[in-house]
């Protein structure tokens, strides 16, 4: 029996004696290789790793694969990337970058990305301005009170998100509660047009995502050592100075976490702009919907989604990662 066969090129040779010896030898090697591994640590990492792999990375690859195909009238409605026929002995491997090229040719998509980022950034900023005092108040209140206040923050999650957005439609419409109140008090004499405007979208996003801002801010502010403020005061710092020089810098991790938790989902938001926004509210989530449902162009829709992930989310994650490392170094 030749040496090459033992290496497993010939499947028939595997049950032979020499192959068995080979296998156990490699088994020994593996044992040595893993001797330095901390199994407990690996086990802990494996669970979230597996989770991310199955529910994030593999779906991402599937979407990426679809983005490289062409749309077709078929089930599923896109062309196969790899086609082969063993009898005819041919295989073709097709990649279609046309979707990505089209994305950059038509400025409409760029406009949609920019408009989404604008709406998401402004709402994140408003959420931060509104959320910070609330988080501060909760963190500085009595421990027994904190539980009550925190549960009030979480309370809206007990109702469906969709219902809450619908409730805003009732508030903001032409003969809705806000207009009725303002008209009856004589502050305005014509009903304000609020629904189906960008204004309503900002309200919807800020309202919906506020808890995601408050909770990380609270965590950061709550674990702050209050004696630091006393020390600042002893050293002659005025309250507003201590706030900007002590409290705010210590809250930075919470601010970053909160902003990311609000910004990332807000960029891709679909429900809020379609229910509260006007027909002219341009957001990438709606463009995606149109590609998917109106054009029935799954590959194009996938390309839009991939570009959004790469252009918007990836830099944010990289910045976050870099900051994490910096903290470790300092």
């Amino acid at each position: 029996m030749g040496h090459g066969q033992q290496c497993g090129f010939d499947l028939m040779s595997i049950p032979s004696g020499s192959a068995w010896i080979d296998k156990s030898a490699s088994g020994m090697a593996r044992y040595n290789l893993f001797r330095g591994v901390n199994w407990g640590r690996l086990g802990v990492i494996a669970v979230p790793g597996l989770w991310l792999g199955i529910f994030f990375f593999i779906p991402f690859l599937v979407v990426f694969k679809i983005s490289l195909s062409e749309s077709a009238i078929a089930v599923p409605p896109y062309s196969a990337m790899l086609e082969w026929d063993l009898e005819e002995a041919y295989a073709t491997f097709k990649l279609n970058f046309g979707n990505y090229i089209y994305l950059f040719e038509d400025t409409f998509y760029l406009d949609a990305y920019i408009s989404s980022v604008k709406i998401a950034s402004v709402s994140t900023l408003i959420t931060l301005i509104v959320g910070f005092p609330i988080a501060y108040l909760i963190a500085r209140s009595k421990p027994s009170m904190r539980v009550v206040l925190l549960s009030l923050v979480i309370l809206p999650f007990w109702t469906s998100f969709l219902l809450r957005v619908y409730a805003w439609m009732g508030f903001l419409k032409k003969n809705g509660i806000v207009n009725e109140f303002l008209l009856s008090t004589g502050i305005i004499d014509q009903p304000l047009i609020m629904l189906q405007t960008d204004f309503a979208v900002y309200i919807g996003i800020v309202y919906t995502y506020l808890p995601f801002m408050i909770l990380p801010l609270y965590t950061a502010l709550e674990k702050m050592d209050l004696t630091l403020l006393e020390a600042a005061e002893d050293l002659g710092s005025r309250p507003y100075q201590s706030f900007f020089l002590v409290t705010l810098p210590l809250a930075v991790p919470g601010i970053i976490a909160g902003c990311l938790l609000v910004f990332i989902p807000a960029v891709g938001e679909f429900v809020i702009p379609s229910l509260l926004g006007g027909s002219d509210t341009l957001m990438i989530g709606r463009v995606l919907w149109d590609e998917f449902f109106l054009n029935r162009d799954w590959p194009m829709a996938s390309a839009v989604a991939i570009v959004m992930l790469v252009v918007l989310v990836l830099p944010v994650m990289l910045i976050r990662n870099a900051q994490g490392k910096e903290e470790v170094h300092s």
């Binding site: 409409f108 002219d280 463009v287 149109d290 109106l294 054009n295 029935r296 162009d297």
Partner: peptide, 17 residues
């Protein structure tokens, strides 16, 4: 499909100006 793409693009143009 080709016309659908033109149509949707024109429609987005109408809606968003």
């Amino acid at each position: 499909s080709k016309f659908d793409r033109l149509l949707t693009r024109a429609w987005s143009g109408i809606k968003t100006g």
